[in-house]
Nucleic acid binder design. Structure first.
Length: 594
RNA sequence: GGAGCUGUGGUGAAGUUGGAGUUCACGCUGGACUGUCACUCCGGAGGUCGCGGGUUCGAGUCCCGUCAGCUCCGCCA
């Protein structure tokens, strides 16, 4: 059975269409039956228009209109007519007109949906995810998917305009050490062997540089089998970029230009370039984070020197053991109750802080149990350094650097959000640079690459390989936006001797390195250009541009926090026969049955 | 692996000191209604209180366990 095809979209009709004969296809948003006349709001992806079924116009159509229900798929033919002035609906873009229906065809019936197809629908996300195809009918979701399409296209257009080639790399690839846990795919042809889904096309893009492709990009799905967060999905999309014969400055400049252009075109906001740059050390010291939200201040202030000489044992003891004491000024919160502060302590405790010292300044009075350990002079210095005014609350953490940064950094963000210090309309871009090349892993008892094993060290730090590898700074950079890491990359090692030093620092023998990255190392022997690149997290960028707080809002079919798809119920058990073909036997410890 | 919050007709919620599956709104359904757009009015249907166990004469409510969703820590660039 053929149906009457649309001549125009619902949401596009306006007053100047009055008089024209149109056919519309779409879903029934709402039916209002007034006995004689029936109104049906018809929706497609462009919007909603009111159609009118009047028995005096067409009795047959009116009769069918009576049977129509929510979410039925229909085709209506009729005339666009102007509404009487008193019946104009100013809340609808199409509110000045309506469709006088002459023919209607029910293309498909529909069950009543479990929730209303409308924005700001108050329904549990579990239900939305199970019926994602209905959720996606909501105008807001159309908007987000449209935004995603646009941004993706802008990336493509910009990179195309800068001589980049989009090249696909394999999804079925080799598991490599370092980095996240791999998603594995068993090979039927090679029993007992596995492909890994890419965590990123890292090695392939470097090989494309060896191959002389100069400028590569790819908008590509990546997979990481790690636990989820609001801003972390097990499969996500990267805008993956690699260049040859381009130094770091030129690459960063180009990437700034790209992001500024996208924000400008989408939001009409002029982004200042070059972006602010912070060293990793600075970011950690001042914001307690390697992805600081620069939309507000409340920086972490070091008072270790004062703490060391003060009478408070927790403070001077921590500093004497090599730790530090830092504080933040929570403006106007001197009124916090004992319980408020207790809650803050609990919060800081999640990040390893063993305590939270506080001082409140209210009308020339200093409150807080630690105040008595400081001399007048010390208090004055603290007030000066933290720019204390009346009614301010100071919070201090004394611990090793990581704990101080993590806990105060988290508190800073919490206050930023709760005290409304963040200007939501702002786009605060920054580069974080000079990351350490390697980091000591207490568990593995060896250094591990902070970025990855092919990251180029800064030339002036090369001599530290033999003495203090932890002090070497990498030519690595993260692009940060509003407290999210939206991109990261590095210049890569292209000299064999440096690569060997790197592997040595990571505790890989030549044999191990060959076994794991042999193909890459071999390729590097055939004329490797200086190269480097970056990868952007497309989903996160969309999330920020859409003003969403979860990646799930930006992905058409996302997974839950336990990495499940509630709509398809994947992952799921498979047939014994399939397993047999793959030479796989399932062995689940009895306490892990799900 | 750990912590917190949540789970009650299709949806969202309320449910007191432990006393009958009780309530509200929306939706659904039958009827009435010719200018509604949150249509209105009258009637009706709809439940494994996430699941399992325990305490109790009696559990939506208390206890233990468990599952699911969300957020966070660990993990992850």
């Amino acid at each position: 059975m053929e149906f009457q095809q649309r001549t125009v979209f619902c949401g596009t009709l306006r007053k100047f269409d009055v008089g024209s004969e149109v056919t519309l296809n779409g879903w029934v948003q709402k039916r209002r039956d007034l006995g004689g006349v029936i109104f049906v709001d018809l929706r497609d992806r462009t919007g909603i228009v009111q159609t009118v079924f009047n028995p005096e116009i067409n009795a047959a159509a009116h009769e069918i209109g009576d049977k129509v229900r929510t979410e039925y798929v229909i085709s209506v033919k009729g005339k666009v007519v102007e509404r009487d002035p008193e019946t104009i609906n100013p809340n609808m873009l199409t509110g000045e007109i309506e469709i006088q229906v002459e023919e209607i065809e029910i293309i498909n019936q529909a069950k009543t949906p479990p929730f209303f197809i409308e924005d700001d629908v108050d329904v549990d996300e579990q239900v939305r995810l199970k019926y994602r195809y209905l959720d996606l009918r909501r105008p807001q979701m159309f908007k987000t998917m449209q935004l995603r399409h646009k941004v993706t296209k802008m990336f493509r257009d910009f990179l195309d305009g800068h001589e980049f080639l989009e090249i696909e790399t394999p999804m079925l690839t080799k598991s490599t050490p370092e980095g996240a846990r791999d998603y594995l795919v068993p090979s039927r042809v090679h029993p007992g062997e596995f492909f890994a889904l890419p965590q990123s096309p890292q090695l392939f893009k470097q090989l494309l540089m060896v191959a002389g492709y100069e400028r590569y990009f790819q908008i590509v799905r990546c997979f990481r089998d790690e636990d989820l967060r609001a801003d972390r999905q097990p499969e996500f999309t990267q805008v993956d970029i690699e260049t040859s014969f381009l130094n770091m400055e030129d690459l960063l400049t180009m990437m700034e230009e790209m992001m500024a252009k996208i924000v400008k075109e989408l939001k009409g906001i002029e982004i200042e370039t070059p972006f602010q740059r912070l060293t990793y050390a600075d970011a950690m010291d001042r914001y307690g984070s390697d992805k600081p939200d620069l939309r507000f201040g409340m920086e972490l202030v070091d008072i270790s020197d004062i703490a060391q000489t003060c009478g408070f044992q927790v403070f001077n003891g921590t500093v004497n053991r090599g730790g530090q004491v830092r504080g933040i000024n929570v403006k106007g919160c001197a009124h916090y109750s004992r319980k408020d502060v207790d809650d803050l302590m609990k919060f800081a405790g999640k990040y390893g802080a063993k305590g939270l010292a506080w001082m409140a300044f209210k009308d020339d009075e200093i409150k807080g149990p630690i105040a008595k350990f400081f001399t007048e002079q010390e208090i004055a210095t603290i007030k000066d350094r933290l720019q204390v005014e009346n009614n301010d609350l100071l919070l201090f953490v004394a611990d090793k650097a990581k704990v101080v940064a993590d806990s105060l950094g988290a508190l800073r963000l919490k206050f930023g959000k709760e005290l409304g210090l963040i200007d939501e309309s702002k786009f605060a871009f920054a580069w974080v640079v000079d990351f350490p090349l390697v980091e000591w892993d207490e568990e593995a008892k060896r250094y591990v690459a902070l970025h990855h094993p092919f990251t180029r060290p800064r030339p002036e730090d090369l001599h530290l390989f033999d003495s203090e590898p932890g002090q070497i700074r990498a030519q690595a950079y993260d692009m940060v936006l509003n407290g999210y890491e939206i991109g990261g990359g590095s210049m890569r090692i292209y000299k064999r001797d440096i690569q060997e030093k790197m592997f040595k620092a990571l505790g890989f023998s030549q044999e191990e390195a060959n076994e794991k990255f042999g193909f890459l190392l071999e390729a590097f022997e055939y004329g490797t250009p200086p190269h480097g690149g970056i990868a952007f997290g497309l989903d996160r960028i969309i999330m920020i541009l859409a003003g969403a707080s979860s990646l799930r809002e930006t992905i058409a079919f996302p997974k839950t926090a336990s990495a499940k798809d509630l709509m398809t119920n994947a992952p799921d058990a498979v047939d014994a026969k399939q397993l047999e073909e793959l030479s796989i036997r399932i062995s689940i410890p009895p306490n892990q049955k799900s």
